[in-house]
Design a protein around this nucleic acid. Structure first.
Ligand SMILES: [Mg+2]
Length: 479
DNA sequence: TTGACACGC
DNA sequence: GCGTGTCAA
């Protein structure tokens, strides 16, 4: 019920923009970096003393930070995006998302039954009882008792991750049951039990949205994390049926950007072919397959399209031929030919990614669409692996960070219009390329248009931004 | 506290 | 590439 008004400067956010890789933006750190005083003699436990000094030096700290923000051209990012976003996130936290506990209990009960059944079967096959949740104990069973081949090792012993289990699945009947067990236990512990424990007295889940955690400008969500609710597998996806509107006067509307990162890449690289693909609204993975494999669009097979999709993801991540070969389970040579072909066809993308690495080396940092910065010290490492990692950061950060800039602009715009026009609908969640609105039924058509247009027109790029809108009686149905 | 693992974009 | 939660040790 308390309003946030006339906020124009937040020190934590200002310092986050000046270096988003820091882990703490507390008063002592800010004093040390921006007040000009020597803080080496200050007792870190003296909270009152630090707070008093911070207030005393606030004018200096503020002036120094704003000067730096200005130098980097981040004025608009700070004043027009990040500062207004504080109220948007605060509102999302206060509103929360209503959750039907009964649905979660029902799913949880089903999961328990299946887990119990699988547990018994696994013990029977193994010939002994052990903690299946312990990778260490599971490793002993799989690789010592049952003598299955060791696929890969971790720092501490045998790896038993999903990729390893997948490879072992036709070697022993226990493996599929373990794969299944893992999935179900994850759903039960993190999602049914975990979410139930977060439901407030108002029947809603109030996540925390952190604005100063990620190095790229994305927001993060904790207690609970509402940005990783299952969607890929149907069994997990059903969890979304528990996320419901307040009552039957409301529905859930979801607006999600189509291919926002590749569109951002087309824009910042100005690659002619990639821009053309999006201007013509092509199926981008099919087009990539056609270019990489040198075949007409209508002759692309499902496998080729799927591989091209992995190539596109790899480009965004700055993936090497080695990384792509592991992802697609193909030879390094074959992966290299995919990437080489891609860069021949999309030479503007190649030039751009090279320039991002040069930027990181020359200036020490890379930037996004709205001039958000991220320092990349890894790029100067003498350790080859660290240096390569730095190069991937230099390539990925402008893409991921620009997408974050865009959806933040859209959030501020959607929120402002709802407030100004005194609508009953509410912005309640953001999941990186998606906004979720709890919409009043009389406002459905209006909100669909409002969300679509504010998201698509958040910024003007060389390619269109496309947003898909879906409506449903719960989050699952809004797909 | 850390590492392994699994969920999301 | 970017995150967070759970569990075991
Ligand atoms: Mg999408």
């Amino acid at each position: 019920g308390i309003e946030l008004k006339n906020l124009n400067f937040d020190g934590e956010i200002a310092s986050y923009l000046l270096n988003p890789s820091e882990s703490k933006y507390d008063m002592l750190n800010l004093l040390n970096q921006y007040s000009g005083i020597n803080t080496s003699g200050i007792d870190a436990d003296d909270k009152n003393g630090i707070a008093a000094l911070y207030v005393q030096k606030l004018d200096d700290i503020k002036r120094n930070m704003l000067t730096e923000i200005n130098k980097h051209g981040m004025n608009e990012l700070f004043e027009k995006i990040e500062m207004p976003l504080i109220e948007v996130l605060s509102s999302m936290e206060c509103l929360g998302f209503k959750v039907d506990a009964q649905i979660l209990h029902d799913i949880g009960f089903e999961l328990s039954e299946e887990i119990d059944k699988l547990t018994g079967e696994i013990y029977d096959i193994a010939g002994s009882e052990f903690n299946i949740n312990s990778p260490k104990q599971l490793g002993v069973i799989l690789f010592e008792k049952l003598n299955l081949p060791v696929i890969k090792k971790t720092k501490t012993g045998y790896s038993t991750d999903a990729e390893v289990l997948e490879e072992l699945s036709d070697k022993h009947e226990i493996v599929d049951k373990i794969i299944n067990y893992r999935q179900l236990v994850k759903l039960k512990s993190t999602y049914t039990d975990g979410l139930i424990s977060c439901i407030g007295k108002d029947g809603r889940i109030h996540s925390s949205f952190n604005q100063t955690v990620t190095a790229t400008g994305r927001i993060s969500s904790t207690e609970p994390n509402l940005q990783n609710i299952p969607i890929k597998m149907e069994q997990g996806r059903r969890i979304r049926k528990a996320f419901v509107p307040e009552n039957d006067e409301y529905v859930i509307i979801s607006g999600d950007y189509s291919q926002i990162e590749l569109r951002v890449l087309a824009h910042i690289s100005q690659d002619k072919s990639l821009i053309n693909s999006f201007v013509n609204n092509e199926d981008i993975h099919r087009r990539t397959a056609s270019e990489v494999f040198g075949i007409p669009m209508d002759e692309v097979t499902p496998l080729q399209r799927s591989r091209a999709k992995a190539v596109n993801f790899g480009i965004i991540y700055g993936q090497s031929d080695y990384g792509l070969s592991k992802e697609l389970k193909i030879s390094r040579k074959e992966a290299k030919s995919y990437i080489d072909n891609y860069f021949k066809r999309y030479s503007g993308v190649k030039d751009y990614l090279d320039s991002a690495i040069l930027d990181a080396k020359d200036k020490g940092y890379v930037t996004t669409l709205m001039n958000r910065i991220r320092y990349i010290p890894e790029i100067n490492s003498t350790n080859k692996n660290v240096k390569k990692f730095g190069e991937r950061l230099a390539m990925n950060t402008p893409i991921q960070g620009s997408a974050a800039d865009i959806i933040k602009i859209a959030m501020v715009k959607v929120y402002s219009r709802i407030k100004k026009e005194k609508l009953k609908s509410r912005l309640i969640l953001q999941v990186h390329d998606e906004l979720i609105v709890e919409a009043y039924k009389n406002e459905i058509d209006y909100m669909k248009q409002l969300i679509k247009s504010e998201m698509e027109n958040a910024v003007k790029l060389s390619v269109p931004l496309v947003v898909d809108i879906n409506v449903g009686n719960n989050w699952y149905e809004a797909k």
